[in-house]
């Protein structure tokens, strides 16, 4: 199986089954996802698991989902390092998304305005030097017979210029 074969499935809108997602499965996938490239091997990430049944403020700030994974990054003072770390964390999330999809787990990768709000960050006991890089909504993918994706069939537009 080639990686590019996953594209069609990833282009379909994600609907979740209600059943919970096993934490063991998430950890199994995360342990592979951490093989993301990251500058200086800083591994600038950590994970907060939030159950969809007991999601506190996420209940009103996010779409419903069986589970949430807050991807928290260390926010270095140096803004250049911070960019590198945000990039590394995004690579990790991409790995996780692809791996999850292969196991019929859907991941909606979200970033919303509230994540910039320190008050909300404190609700999840983030340190002052941490920020939320993404909130992943995770669940088993419900099979919808009716969804055929137009987008997957399209050639993606590329803005490719020569130096």
């Amino acid at each position: 199986m080639k990686l590019s074969d996953l594209a069609e499935g990833l282009n379909k809108p994600i609907h979740f089954e209600e059943r919970p997602v096993s934490k063991e499965l998430m950890l199994e996938l995360l342990n592979i996802a951490v093989w993301a490239p990251n500058d200086g091997l800083r591994e600038p990430w950590r994970f907060i698991y939030v159950d969809g049944q007991n999601s506190g403020i996420l209940n009103r700030l996010q779409e419903p989902a069986p589970a949430y994974l807050l991807i928290v990054m260390q926010a270095e003072h140096d803004s250049h390092k911070q960019e590198e770390d945000f990039a590394a964390v995004s690579c990790l999330i991409q790995n996780f998304r692809l791996l999850a999809h292969e196991r019929s787990l859907g991941v909606r990768w979200t970033l919303n305005e509230w994540t910039y709000d320190r008050k909300h960050a404190e609700a999840f006991m983030l340190q002052d030097d941490e920020r939320i890089a993404a909130v992943l909504e995770v669940g088993h993918i419900a099979v919808h017979a009716d969804v055929t994706s137009e987008k997957a069939l399209q050639e993606p537009q590329l803005r490719f210029e020569l130096l």
Binding site: S4, L6, A7, L10, A152, P156, R159, F160, E161
Partner: peptide, 21 residues
């Protein structure tokens, strides 16, 4: 690059650009 973009449905064509050497 096209294959990679296909794996990233949320990424609009206008959101990125490549300069190639």
């Amino acid at each position: 690059l096209r294959d990679a973009a296909r794996l990233q449905p949320a990424l609009d064509a206008g959101a990125w650009r490549v300069v190639y050497a």
